[in-house]
Amino acid sequence: MSTCPECGSDVALHDDLEVGEIVDCDTCGTELEVVDTAPPVLDRAPELSEDWGE
């Protein structure tokens, strides 16, 4: 469990959390980046950039 930096709600997290992964806040919908796992810390994820992709 961690806290959404946007709205302050609790965010439920799965076990195999990975730094760099993106999770959604179920309350406000903000995309959040996992910046640490022990303990879990979340930050607002970067906006989509034009050169993102595969």
Binding site: D16, E18, V19, G20, E21, I22, E33, V34, A45
Partner: peptide
């Protein structure tokens, strides 16, 4: 090398 871990990277890491 990464800047975001997608499901693809998680599969690879696992």
């Amino acid at each position: 090398l990464y800047s975001r871990i997608r499901k693809d990277e998680k599969l690879l890491l696992a």
